[in-house]
Design a protein around this nucleic acid. Structure first.
Length: 303
RNA sequence: GGUGCCAUAGCUCAGUUGGUAGAGCAACGGACUGAAAAUCCGUGUGUCCUUGGUUCAAUUCCGAGUGGCACCA
């Protein structure tokens, strides 16, 4: 029988973690976190890592599995998850993946085109070029090296330009030549469950959760990694705002409000992304019974 | 009780020498292929407190009312 991956997704703070434990317990399986920041072992409070009591109930994967010093990406995540699933599916028919990192989820469900590893030195050089000469310099280079991608890329988005240039310069081939995007076939079924709430309720939950994080000591957690604030892994809601406070830019209260706002913005971006995916079956967070029933029916159909 | 000031977007406020209005923040929509909790693009959502008057025309000027603030009693 073909195995099944249950993908539980939704905006930040909607209640994915709680339901993921219910599902994993019900289907007697384990949870893979699809969260781009929970992988870092130095971060816990600000990334809303499930409490140890929950982690003891059900085995979790890809939580605290890496260091903020490591270079990690959606593609690494894809590899990691596929490896974990391969092992897990030897014993279980079902696995649960829960989290809200859109690109990471996509990497697992559809795959990413394989690209060469990026050279950190080249990236640093390109960023310096960008800082010194401006975005127009990046555009001109890309126009020459990859006119096809130049025609479709967001020319105002430095990250897109930088990454395409990196690939062009390391391989000597246009970046767009790697973007074949064949949706990769997975050796398992995927059932996507989306959780959502009315916007107002969602925002209230997010705001309350940020207050709770502050009570639990987010400030101290951020202070411990403050000296590393330049790391990409720390360009993260909940930390960057506190770093600004430590730098003397604004008060603690202002930082807290910014964390709330940026979390709300993040939730909106997640919903924009998810809205496009017609494979998602939407539920409310309290509909655990309905979700379980739905999954059971789906699995019957898939047999 | 008296005097003065204020009332415009969800909030803080600007403005219209009378021709139905615009900033910041908030909010909302979108993009997204190895940095993605990142990065980037877009959108004004309004009984201009109520009510009389003047006027071709009032959010704007005048009167009254209501509410708020300050000062004086």
């Amino acid at each position: 029988m073909k195995k099944t991956l249950i993908v539980l997704l939704g905006p930040t703070g909607v209640g994915k973690s709680d339901l993921s434990i219910r599902l994993a317990q019900y289907f007697d399986t384990e949870i893979i976190s699809s969260d781009s920041r929970q992988v870092y072992r130095e971060l816990s409070i600000g990334t809303a890592v499930p409490p140890l009591t929950d982690q003891r109930k059900v085995k979790h994967h890809l939580i605290h599995s890496h260091s903020i010093h490591e270079y990690y990406s959606a593609s690494h995540f894809e590899d990691d998850v596929l490896k974990i699933l391969q092992l897990l599916f030897r014993e279980k028919d079902i696995a649960v993946m829960a989290g809200g990192s859109m690109l990471y989820i996509d990497a697992v469900c559809n795959g990413m085109d394989s690209l060469p590893d990026t050279d950190q030195k080249l990236r640093t050089e390109l960023i310096r070029d960008f800082d010194e000469k401006g975005i127009e310099h990046l555009r001109l280079q890309l126009k020459r090296l990859d006119p096809d991608y130049y025609a479709v890329v967001d020319l105002k988005n430095p990250k897109r330009l930088l990454h395409a240039l990196e690939v062009c310069l390391t391989t000597g081939k246009p970046y767009s030549s790697f973007l074949t995007r064949p949706k990769k076939e997975r050796p398992f079924h995927i059932i996507k469950i989306g959780l959502n709430l009315e916007r107002e309720n969602l925002y209230e939950r997010i705001n309350r959760r940020v207050d709770r994080m502050m009570e639990e000591g987010l400030e101290e957690e951020a202070r411990q990694v403050y000296s590393l604030k330049h790391l990409n892994s720390l360009n993260t809601v909940g930390y960057k705002e506190l770093f600004a406070f430590f730098d003397g830019t604004g008060s603690k209260e202002e930082a807290t409000e910014l964390i709330k706002r940026n979390s709300r913005h993040y939730a909106r971006r997640q919903l924009t992304w998810f809205r496009r995916d017609k494979e998602i079956n939407w539920f409310r967070p309290e509909q655990a019974e309905e979700v379980i029933q739905f999954i059971k029916n789906q699995i019957l159909c898939l047999k």
